[in-house]
Design a protein around this nucleic acid. Sequence first.
DNA 1: ATGTCGAGTTGGTTTTTCCAACCCAGCAGG
DNA 2: CCTGCTGGGTTGGAAAAACCAACTCGACAT
Lengths: 146, 146
Amino acid sequence: MTPVTRPAPRECSVAAALDVIGEKWSLLVVRELFLGSRRFNDIAANTGAPRDILTTRLRRLEDLGVIERRLYSERPERFIYVLTDKGKDLRPVMMALKHWGDAHVMGRVMPPAYVHTCGAEFTPAMHCAECGEKVDGASLVRSDLR
Amino acid sequence: MTPVTRPAPRECSVAAALDVIGEKWSLLVVRELFLGSRRFNDIAANTGAPRDILTTRLRRLEDLGVIERRLYSERPERFIYVLTDKGKDLRPVMMALKHWGDAHVMGRVMPPAYVHTCGAEFTPAMHCAECGEKVDGASLVRSDLR
DNA sequence: ATGTCGAGTTGGTTTTTCCAACCCAGCAGG
DNA sequence: CCTGCTGGGTTGGAAAAACCAACTCGACAT
């Protein structure tokens, strides 16, 4: 008897993105790299990730092109991890997450993350890249989100 | 002998946010709710999450105020799940994730997610909420990100 | 000769996840 | 009245991940 095949879940780029950076610790690793950590021990200490798990995450993020493992000293062999362009493009994700965490999880107790060149503490706002207009709930129509 | 206490990992609102919505399936559940799914079976089918896991995720998201479980029919008892305001505030996170997934994981094969009222397919752009200026890499200074 | 550092491994335990099957209430049809 | 179907879950057991402390290894450093 053929097994009952369940219908496939929705394919979408949110799911695709989460396949890459959705595992436990992955986004914290990316955060650390944004913050300037580069060495294995620093990333381990600052994220709190177990060292063995961290190893597998770093390997996978490297395989998927999000980060790069760079030898910066032979004898003794030493490495740094840095974000690729693909990894750096996660900045909006990080900012959105940080903003939400600030607003809804912490009580706005954390120091500001970024200061804009205009002088103000940076608060992100989403605009339409095409026309530049600020986006709120009413100004977007869902077309066929998947 | 006192156990060696490892130094605490960095406290930050990204980590705090991920504590809430970073578990496997949680963000896909949120996506589904954004897409208009409301019933348990639909969420299960469209995300692909195992039903038992889905139950624990829904309970937790409810406890944390991200979603609401609403009785919409007694006899037979039937429920819908909807995003709270806190949950709806995850829209920028979802959009950033979708955009990154589109650009770097799929090859831009998915249909557009949103259409802006200006008529164009919506591409998100991050601006400074204070001055309205578009933000790029050079226009932000990290102040004390944690 | 001993110690430290960076960057991992290793072995064993504990948690989670996964899956298929089951349960229950309320109908609906015959 | 008996059977089946739908919605919203539980349950039990197997498989996979995560966790932890301790260990390794090749440079140097004291």
